[in-house]
Design a protein around this nucleic acid. Structure first.
Length: 553
DNA sequence: GTAGGGTTAG
């Protein structure tokens, strides 16, 4: 009876049954009833009541332990699930079986705790519990989530029995870890083996298309999804919207969005984000209003995205309006939103308000610190950015990450703090052992290039482990123009033409270098080449609101 | 007759 209630989430009725059982004194003697009651309360999100039933048993069996652990795990309380598991193992009265481990491994996956997962893996092998499909799938998912691509693919190869869940986990693993091609290969291998794709495998394959801007393949998968009726699935549609938006087909994304019968906050967020991505940020406020009037309560992610859209547009009034809404919805302490608010105010030319938001946040995570440092940098206040960075490093336990260094290095570069920039770059590599990416190198080249240290800038490019991207060569080209070094400018330009042959700005920069060096022949040749390619110099657009004296208190 | 696996987002 309780089981039936759990299935139906019929709490009131279940409680009545619980009362009846208690009155008849059956609960102590009947473990079946106990686990059914725990399941009922857990599924109704009443973990306290579930735990109370569990504690009534002085000698719970393995099923009872497992039900309680699973209850925590499925309610998203993985920490409690693992601590209960530890308690069970310490007591040593019952031995975990494969079913217990499924929930324990899932909890490790939720916490991205690979170390704990691996020790459970060892335990499972030792106990000979390792062959079950569900448990293998749970491990597969753990490796997928923690980015252990090799461990996941090795396990998959070894599995004798596989189902659509196994395939789905492997596809997601590849898709989320920069191996889109492998993800699509696995998807097609799966269909060749006549395993019917479900919504999860379709989502993984779509994400792989999205990551590589593979519109052609994305459309094929859309067809499969439509044939199987997955256009009714909001998660599949969200993945489709993301894919179309990222592949530069916003019209198809919008059309699909309008066809959707059920919409949640996540798919609205995908639409919003996609519009900004495709240069239609101006529509974002309208979309946000439509979402509100259709009765969807915005969640933290939607709020963060609409704020990002607003910072792209630079409309301060809109930032104030949204900030008020954030407060009204009770999101003031949300770290994502705090970071977006700081970014919005900084980009909307209101550093004072960004600082007020920063100071109003008690629990500052690394995103908050990095956003504020970036804010100072954007406004040319490099010294203050450095002070804030120092304060973070010295007074908190928060470790700067790649993004933090991007912000602080760019702050130094904006105001020409060369010595400090070099020190920070060395700190990043040696003290924090972070691997600089193309953007970091780009800033360093910019920093050195601006002050005329072109040879040092070139030296940095030559010592990079990866080939220089557009940030790097673009920064060097810009520096060569300022300091009139035609020879090095040509090297930089040649690399840029290869990286992005259609980018008009690079040709124009080089032709300006030729012009100031008096190389009129070279300049004319280049201009003709540009004309032949029918490139037009794109006029940069920026928008700044004129009246912006409002402040928040 | 009681317990088990995968997916959205800054």
């Amino acid at each position: 009876m309780s089981l039936a209630c759990a299935g139906l989430r019929a709490l009131d009725f279940g409680k009545m049954v619980h009362g009846f059982i208690k009155k008849n004194d059956e609960i102590d003697s009947n473990l079946f009833v106990g686990s059914a009651m725990i399941e009922l309360y857990s599924k109704c999100r009443m973990l306290d009541d579930a735990l109370r039933v569990f504690e009534e048993y002085t000698q719970p069996d393995i099923v009872l332990w497992t039900t309680m652990i699973t209850g925590f795990e499925q309610s998203g309380d993985a920490v409690e699930a693992l601590s209960l598991f530890t308690r069970m193992v310490m007591l040593g009265r019952v031995c975990p079986d494969a079913i217990t481990l499924v929930s324990v491994v899932s909890a490790c996956g939720q916490l991205l705790n690979l170390k704990a997962g691996i020790s459970v893996h060892g335990f499972a092998v030792k106990m000979g519990l390792y062959s079950g499909l569900s448990l293998s799938n749970a491990f597969l998912n753990l490796y997928a989530k923690t980015g252990c691509v090799n461990a996941a693919s090795n396990l998959f190869k070894k599995m004798q029995e596989k189902d659509v869940i196994s395939w789905g986990s492997l596809i997601a693993c590849y898709a989320h870890n920069g191996a889109a091609k492998e993800a699509l290969d696995v998807f097609s291998e799966m269909t060749h083996k006549r395993v019917e794709p479900n919504s999860v495998t379709v989502i993984g394959a779509l994400q792989a298309c999205e990551a590589t801007c593979n519109l052609e393949e994305g459309k094929k998968i859309h067809e499969i999804a439509a044939r199987k009726g997955f256009e009714l699935d909001v998660l599949v549609c969200t993945a489709l919207i993301d894919m179309y938006m990222n592949c530069g087909s916003p019209d198809e994304a919008v059309e699909l969005f309008h066809r959707m019968t059920k919409k949640d906050a996540v798919c609205w967020a995908a639409l919003l984000c996609g519009c900004v991505q495709n240069g239609m940020g101006g529509k974002s406020m309208g979309i946000f209003c439509n979402m509100l009037s259709s009765g969807i309560q915005p969640d933290a992610v939607v709020m963060a995205k609409i704020l990002t859209a607003c910072s792209e547009l630079g409309i301060l009034q809109q930032a104030f309006c949204l900030h008020g809404f954030v407060i009204k919805c009770g999101f003031s302490n949300n770290a994502f939103i705090g970071g977006s608010l700081i970014e919005s105010y900084s980009k909307c030319c209101s550093l004072d308000n960004a600082i007020k938001v920063f100071e109003g946040i008690n629990d500052r995570d690394i995103v908050i610190w990095s956003s504020m440092i970036a804010g100072y940098g954007m406004h040319g206040r490099g010294r203050e950015a450095l002070e804030l960075f120092d304060q973070m490093v010295k007074n908190t336990t928060i470790r700067p990450n790649n993004v933090t260094f991007l912000s602080i290095l760019s702050a130094c570069s904006h105001v020409g703090l060369v010595k400090e920039g070099i020190e920070l770059f060395n700190m990043m590599v040696h003290e924090y052992q972070l691997m600089p990416n193309s953007k970091h190198y780009g800033i360093m080249v910019d920093l050195l290039g601006r002050t005329g240290e072109l040879d040092k800038a070139m030296g940095i490019i030559n010592q990079m482990a990866v080939p220089g991207g557009p940030h790097v060569w673009g920064a060097l080209l810009g520096a060569c123009r300022i300091h009139q070094n035609t020879e090095m400018g040509e090297v930089a330009a040649r690399n840029l033409f290869q990286l992005d042959p259609d980018h008009a700005g690079y040709y124009i920069l080089l032709s300006n270098i030729y012009a100031s060096d008096g190389k009129w022949d070279d300049m004319t040749k280049l201009r003709t080449l540009v004309k032949d390619k029918m490139l037009k110099k794109l006029s940069g657009q920026s928008r700044v609101e004129v009246r912006s004296e409002v402040t928040i208190s």
